[in-house]
């Protein structure tokens, strides 16, 4: 049945080469932990992607219950965590997954650095990777405010003061991020928009570039 459906689509759209291209590329021996166990360090990039997928999925489900308003944000988080079935787990996935993502990004960066994988011809991919790192930090920073508890508020105040310390344009950056002269209603709405629309869009674009480049250039050779 499924095979027939697949054939029906494949006959018309010739989809086999598309997924073959993804599925059938060889994993070189030096990055395969089955040959050299130490090659597990090559898994961190994939693990980063895996945690990002978890973040996107759990985030999509969390916004079903979350509202970005100073009166209600905390109540809605409390409700979704304590009154909705599996709320603690779904929020937990997003909360802990955020930290795990940063750790995985860091380990992936270390692996690329110490294997020298950033060298010519892969400099552009390193640059995109650094941009991805910043975007992920941005997601962490903006997401931290959303539960709208004391920790969120004061962490964001500190973060915005750091932004304000930039020479010459610091004040503008702060006002732009804060959306107001206090950390309040407009900051929360703004951070929400940045957290769920702007940064994820940039993240997905950069990830696509990152993956297309690695397919084009292949994994760097053994040490």
């Amino acid at each position: 049945m499924l095979a027939k459906l697949y054939d029906w689509i494949d006959e018309r759209l010739d989809i086999t080469p598309m997924w073959r291209d993804l599925a059938d590329h060889e994993v070189p021996e030096h990055v395969n932990p089955a040959y050299h166990f130490s090659a597990f360090v090559y898994c961190f990039g994939g693990l980063t992607f895996f945690t990002i997928v978890i973040q996107i999925l759990s985030g999509m489900f969390l916004v079903m219950y979350y509202v970005p308003d100073i009166d209600r944000a905390w109540d809605s988080v409390f409700y979704l965590q304590n009154k909705v079935a599996y709320g603690q787990i779904v929020r937990g996935m997003h909360h802990w997954g955020a930290s795990v993502t940063i750790v995985m990004v860091f380990l992936h960066t270390l692996r690329v650095f110490f294997t020298g994988a950033y060298k010519k011809p892969r400099e552009l991919n390193w640059i995109v990777g650094v941009l991805l790192f910043f975007v992920i930090l941005g997601l962490g920073f903006t997401g931290y405010l959303l539960p709208w508890d004391m920790k969120a508020l004061f962490a964001t105040k500190v973060g915005l003061q750091i932004a304000a310390s930039v020479p010459f344009i610091g004040g503008w950056i702060q006002t732009l991020l804060q959306g107001s002269d206090v950390v309040g209603a407009q900051t929360l709405a703004r951070f929400f928009a940045i957290h769920v629309f702007f940064l994820p869009a940039v993240l997905l674009g950069l990830l696509a570039a990152h993956f297309i480049m690695i397919r084009r250039q292949g994994i760097s050779g053994p040490l």
Binding site: S58, F61, V84, A85, Y86, I89
Partner: peptide, 15 residues
């Protein structure tokens, strides 16, 4: 294992 809690979370109003 990953998706089940999220789906149960989403359909909670039904249950």
């Amino acid at each position: 294992g990953m998706l089940m809690p999220m789906l149960r979370f989403a359909v909670d109003p039904l249950l």
